[in-house]
Design a protein around this nucleic acid. Sequence first.
DNA 1: CAGTGGTCTAGACCACCGT
DNA 2: CGGTGGTCTAGACCACTGG
Lengths: 257, 257
Amino acid sequence: MAAAIDATPTTLPEDLFLDVDRTSAIPLYFQIATRIEQAIVDGRLAPGARLENEVTLGQRLNMSRPTIRRAMQELVNKGLLVRRRGIGTQVVHGPVTRKVELTSLYDDLDRGGQRPATNLLVHEIVPADDVVADRLSIAAGEPVLHVRRLRLSDGVPLAVMENYLPEDYTDLTADALASRGLYQLLRGRGTQIRVAQQRIGARAATAEESRLLEIKRSGPVLTMDRTAYDTFGKAVEYGHHCYRPDNYSFEITLVNN
Amino acid sequence: MAAAIDATPTTLPEDLFLDVDRTSAIPLYFQIATRIEQAIVDGRLAPGARLENEVTLGQRLNMSRPTIRRAMQELVNKGLLVRRRGIGTQVVHGPVTRKVELTSLYDDLDRGGQRPATNLLVHEIVPADDVVADRLSIAAGEPVLHVRRLRLSDGVPLAVMENYLPEDYTDLTADALASRGLYQLLRGRGTQIRVAQQRIGARAATAEESRLLEIKRSGPVLTMDRTAYDTFGKAVEYGHHCYRPDNYSFEITLVNN
DNA sequence: CAGTGGTCTAGACCACCGT
DNA sequence: CGGTGGTCTAGACCACTGG
């Protein structure tokens, strides 16, 4: 008979897979994963609910088991599903949150319904010093674009951002940088960020930072150093950012595989 | 003939796959991934080096393409390899760093060759208040273990850590908590952490924190709030940690898939 | 054009879990 | 024991890249 493991014998996700398009350029596993994810965040699949097993779901959808399996694996990697051998697949208990993604502060604010604005403080082309050259994996002295920006959200200063970009990007204009996020501009040029290394820390604000961020002298600031690489593995950006800690923090979801 | 894309025509990882054990309980894809990863961190595979393609490597090792592919995918997810359709697989340019893993401060220090120590400041069983109950997904008033610890590294105070654990773990002894890391103790009880949500921020230290951490009054501290869940999706631990920013920071590698 | 990774299929055997 | 996920095989077709 059906095993009664968790007060829910065997939940079968109702057929909301009706609109899967086998001719679409979107991979099947991705279409499946997206629909299950939607059902979870919508609450149609409650925390702890057991999913149909991989084999029978594949049969119902006329898909092979590896395809179904990959769809579920995507959600396991996002922390939405939990699988246990001999038991089955469940929606994770506890709060359902977004996975960490590689986005920019500008995107985050924009999506959050806030109105981001940028004051461009510095915009110059300079030879790379040793630190910048090291981070960007270029030779010291090569020209880099140096920008320093103050990011505001609904008029409140939020972050001082200092960035260095290699020669390929030295033609980014001041206008563009003042009106859009850096990553937005990079995407617009066809640059896709694939890997980024960040270091998050804290320290006392410098005199200039406290003035720009309108916080107490030597008050605490949250700092982030980042180097971002494109799909070619080439360093695209090195940045040192400095955030007002009362208005910003980093959220991270870690998943053990 | 062979395409010359990056000054390295087609690098074939020398046969350091001689010791793969097909009878081992360790999955083949994992054995392959581990050996390639080792070659990368050892420097035997330089940044930017092109790897042999999936098909021929599989033939050489008498393994199917999906198995080889999975091994490489593991390393792509860790940010060590980059794959591009029509091009091939390369070791990522730039510095090679470990992926973020779900470890504890104690483990990090221990692995780093430092001598971690713990002062147990508070060890009590109390009814959960509203905040703790919410984070642990239990009812307010249920008994929880509350511990407050000062972590030192080579005698230098590094972090003040406040943690709450649900009823199942209220029998953790003071001795155990003073001599080992929390996650180490949980692992020893068979509890495996699967998902954790963290929020990293900064603020001024409280009077007690500055005394314990031996830093300036109201000096900046790095803070981390975390809720960890086991493989069942059950909340296992809620913690609020407070770090000396001159001695600690968070390193994170993000990967876009 | 030939080479590469991206996706998908249709099976197979095994390890682990609960009854 | 039956059911589940974990792994592996041996193919196939496609999309994209470079020359």
